[in-house]
Design a protein around this nucleic acid. Structure first.
Lengths: 193, 193
DNA sequence: GTCTATAGATCGATAGAC
DNA sequence: GTCTATCGATCTATAGAC
């Protein structure tokens, strides 16, 4: 890899951080150019559709990461309890224990929600459905599984909002602990929750 | 009241809706002028500090509304169970059953979070603390009350994110029901939760 | 207090040389 | 592919007449 930025893919993580920090409207092309080290011409070479294509590519990239690292493992792991534990661990790492906001959630509340309504909806729907399916395999009734899946995802998103608002990552950590305690537990000879 | 807009106070609700819909950066002065029916000069007459002063005034207005309609009732209502029920009812009405986003939460995730960090922090801290105090009066241990207060506020914020993302207000309604079931219940001869 | 007009900066996007 | 230069639009904010 002779260059820092060899392909379009290489700038996506930087773009994601910029959109996370400044939102869609707040991420100006001059700021993007400065942070990526690319001139406007290079950016338009990689993303002919401009800023909107950049954000769409970032969303697609995030979707793909969650698909590979969260959703598919939730579906494929034979042991549902292990699948749930793995999800929480991956989520904690991804959101850096609450110091990193969820770009999809931020876009859902922010200025560009209409522009990306469909990928935003699909991301959360997929998460909710795979989580509900895993909870069902872990022993919950279908209705309870759907309800807990929705509650868990809302709790995570709310924790990211609150952690950011209070500037206290502990909110996210405590939320993960509450979720761990509420998910169907392995049958073990230990104290009850 | 001879005019539609007689005072600075009169435009605050409209400004709040604009910031809710477009975020801070997305709310341009031309858009604000169109929606409020005020020219730029009038806006700068009311808000010499420009857009930043408009958003600060809106935040202060929201703070005052919650202080009067949520926080003080939580503190003053003698019956803690009734206080909690009142809070949930007021919250449901304010957020229009999930169709209206929380501007404070949206700002916390969005572009202008650093600009308004202190009022955002104060709003959520005040809510968390008054709720925890009411829960303690309702019989919970101090640590449990603080934990449940944080969980409840995060759940509400997350529900607003998810309801918006999935375009399904049912998420918010179901979250309120879950919270109702989890708050300390009145002593009644009924089924357990 | 509200109007028109506009300053001055920055926006997203493009052209053309190399 | 990346550079410089720049377009026209839009931005926040202000000036000055009324």
């Amino acid at each position: 890899m002779p260059r820092v930025v060899a392909e379009r893919e290489d700038v996506l993580p930087t773009l994601a951080e910029i959109f996370r920090e400044h939102g869609f409207e707040g991420a100006s092309l001059s700021l993007i150019g400065r942070r990526t080290g690319l001139g406007k011409s290079s950016l338009y070479h990689f993303f002919p559709g401009g800023k909107e294509e950049m954000a769409a590519a970032v969303l697609k990239n995030i979707e793909a990461w969650f698909e590979a690292n969260i959703f598919l493992p939730l579906e494929k792991e034979a042991d549902p309890h292990r699948a749930l534990e793995n999800m929480l661990r991956a989520v904690e790492a991804y959101f850096q224990s609450g110091r990193r906001v969820c770009l999809v959630g931020a876009l859902a509340l922010g200025d560009a929600r209409d522009r990306f309504a469909e990928p935003i909806r699909a991301y959360f729907a997929r998460w909710r459905d795979t989580l509900a399916e895993a909870l069902q395999r872990a022993g919950l009734a279908r209705a309870d599984a759907k309800d807990l899946a929705e509650e868990a995802i809302a709790a995570l998103q709310g924790a990211l909002v609150l952690a950011r608002a209070l500037d206290d990552p502990g909110v996210f950590r405590r939320t993960l602990n509450r979720l761990k305690a509420r998910l169907p537990a392995r049958a073990r000879p230990m104290r009850s929750a």
